[in-house]
């Protein structure tokens, strides 16, 4: 029984590791400038955690194999070094490992989250609401019109509650359901929720940030590859949560300009 158990543990451990090593299921290819360091950090962690996982399962299995004796005789033995050795080992190995991961990880995080957007970043506002995202481009004046919550009315497509009759800033705001951006241009995304907690997750872009109702947060990133990608909500927001998405269209600058003109005409 014990030997079977030991073998089972080892088989399970190896079987669990195979899809990881073979990359059977992996994250989609990165399309951002900041993404590669996240991916590196991920694979480093995968290697270290993987080794720790296999080592621990193997040792457990081996000891079960060796020391489960149906008919025991003789004295018990102590692992050489005892607890002191293990504690020192844990502090050294795990301590160094987590310190390294922590420090490198912190650097990655700082690169992504603690650096300000560049001066030329293009501002776009995204508003989350049950269960759709809407995007707003400031138009030629570069200014977003003020939001009046009492004016929000989805049935007239005033998703942001802007006052198009009285507010001069509102005249040229462009509101869209699709998130189009030019490739290789830094985007400064201003995030606003009109109702509940939502999240903005684009797997390929390595971007993930919650919307906080009552508190506007922002993100910045640069996409490097033309294509269409899914934006999904990851913060449980109600019955249509699974259906809350939008699409990110990364375009060439020309296509983007054309698209924006088209959208402006449709306002």
């Amino acid at each position: 029984m014990a030997k079977l158990f030991a073998v089972t543990i080892i088989v399970i451990a190896i079987a669990s590791a195979i899809p990881i090593i073979m990359h059977t299921w992996s994250a989609p290819e990165d399309i951002s400038i900041h993404g590669p360091i996240i991916d590196d950090q991920m694979s480093e962690t995968m290697a270290e955690a993987g080794i720790a996982f296999l080592a621990a399962q193997f040792v457990l299995a081996i000891f079960i194999w060796m020391f489960a004796k149906p008919n025991p005789g003789g004295k018990i033995k102590k692992f050489p070094g005892g607890a002191t050795g293990l504690v020192i080992g844990a502090f050294l190995i795990v301590g160094i490992e987590v310190l390294a991961l922590g420090v490198f990880g912190a650097k990655v995080w700082a690169d992504v989250y603690l650096s300000p957007p560049g001066a030329n970043a293009m501002p776009v506002q995204v508003q989350a609401g049950q269960f759709a995202f809407y995007f707003r481009y400031p138009g030629p004046d570069g200014k977003f019109a003020a939001i009046h919550p009492n004016l929000i009315d989805e049935s007239t497509e005033n998703f942001f509650g802007i006052d198009t009759t009285n507010d001069p800033d509102a005249k040229d705001d462009i509101v869209t359901a699709e998130f189009a951006i030019p490739v290789n241009k830094e985007i400064h995304l201003l995030m606003h929720s009109k109702d509940l907690g939502h999240s903005f997750y684009v797997r390929e872009l390595r971007v993930h940030q919650d919307f906080v109702p009552g508190l506007d947060v922002s993100l910045h990133f640069t996409a490097t590859k033309i294509g269409k990608y899914e934006i999904v909500c990851t913060q449980l927001c109600g019955l249509g949560h699974y259906n809350m998405k939008a699409y990110l269209e990364v375009m060439s600058q020309d296509d983007f300009d054309k698209w924006l003109k088209q959208q402006a005409a449709a306002q």
Partner: peptide, 12 residues
């Protein structure tokens, strides 16, 4: 009574 779909906010 106004009726809407939140999954498709334009549905009114």
């Amino acid at each position: 009574i106004h009726v809407k779909c939140n999954i498709h906010p334009w549905m009114s």
